[in-house]
Write a protein that binds this DNA or RNA. Structure first.
Lengths: 123, 123
DNA sequence: TTACTATATAAGCATATGCTTATATAGTAA
DNA sequence: TTACTATATAAGCATATGCTTATATAGTAA
């Protein structure tokens, strides 16, 4: 049973360009690099990027709409993770990004782990 | 002798995002895919993309400003070619794009070769 | 229920982007 | 020089983008 719409090659290139455009924003590119290693929740990114919570949510919505990330609600938190197993062009770009530890150090942030289940000092 | 400015890792990620943003436009992405196989001049792209000549020149200027393409003037024509030997993240994306022949077929264009030296019927 | 926390959505705004037309520049050819 | 071709630059415009603040929604905990 075919549930996907049929896309021709031009449509595919258009979708590829759209996905790549989403990577072409410094904030989102770093988000995706961080997501290489583990899932993060919205409030983590609010702390790391110093962007308002709605700002972060909107970035995640864009990434989700193009199936680049997936979300999972657990309790009051929503965790985001990469969904690029079928997107080698995105994997290839992220392969050239530093790991979480280096990124956080560059941004003068510590891994706060703000949304861990046992953490009472969460956002 | 150090002629390059020093960039820290955050600057490098910013530049990476800028380069990727340039790929995130359908027209430029297809241009770069076409350039994988050979050089093209501005008037070729005017015919293929049905965008005004200044529009094409502005795309090439952006790509040139981030060193993604290089130009070579020969006679009255300016030929553009890829300059991504040192940019594996861009190579990786272009590896997932179709070849010139397929692209031109999809766009219902024939390889006009409008700017060949021996071509009198050029733009 | 009420009070709270985390996230999403709506609306607004300043700036960026991709095109256009008009014009300037660079080279060719008589 | 003059006439021509190819390309670049300038200016303008409609739309997209990345943020903000205000508010709605979803879940937790008493």
């Amino acid at each position: 049973m075919e549930t996907e719409l049929h896309f021709n090659k031009l449509d595919q290139m258009t979708e590829l360009a759209e996905q790549i455009k989403l990577l072409g924003d410094r904030t989102r590119l770093i988000m995706l690099a961080l997501l290489k290693e583990r899932e993060w929740c919205v409030c983590d990114f609010v702390e790391i990027f110093e962007i308002s919570q709605p700002g972060i949510s909107q970035h995640m919505r864009k990434l989700k709409s193009h199936k680049i990330v997936k979300e999972e609600r657990r309790g009051q938190w929503v965790y985001y993770s990469l969904n690029i197993a079928d997107k080698p062009h995105i994997q290839a770009v992220l392969d050239h990004m530093p790991g979480s530890e280096e990124i956080l150090r560059m941004m003068n942030k510590t891994e706060s782990d703000c949304c861990s289940p046992g953490n009472d000092s969460c956002c």
